[in-house]
């Protein structure tokens, strides 16, 4: 079971959160066309390794958080608020 350190509420069980996809994508502008939105919505990264992803603390502060998590070990290395930058490490 994941334990996610919410910056507002402290470490909490995964059951309080819900996953909401890759947080490295940016919604295209209204004039960017179907191909751009297709990339945004469907062609997500699916790394075997580190991923920055959205989680909502739905049963807590309800904030959307960026979580740096490893998709094999499930280790969580960093959590940021929605407006903070959180990068995927190189290796």
């Amino acid at each position: 079971m994941l334990r996610i350190p919410c910056p507002h509420c402290g470490p909490r069980d995964e059951a309080e959160f819900s996953y909401r996809g890759d947080a490295t994508v940016t919604r295209p502008g209204p004039e960017d066309g179907i191909e751009a939105f297709h990339g945004y919505l469907y062609e997500r990264r699916n790394p075997r390794g580190w991923q920055v992803e959205w989680w909502q603390h739905g049963a807590g502060c309800r904030a959307f958080l960026k979580v740096l998590r490893h998709t094999v070990t499930h280790e969580i290395r960093a959590v940021a608020t929605a407006t903070e930058a959180l990068e995927v490490p190189e290796a």
């Binding site: 819900s18 959307f64 929605a82």
Partner: peptide
Amino acid sequence: MQHLEFHLASVWP
């Protein structure tokens, strides 16, 4: 509710 919160937080903060 979640849809609105998500877009407000992530797309139009």
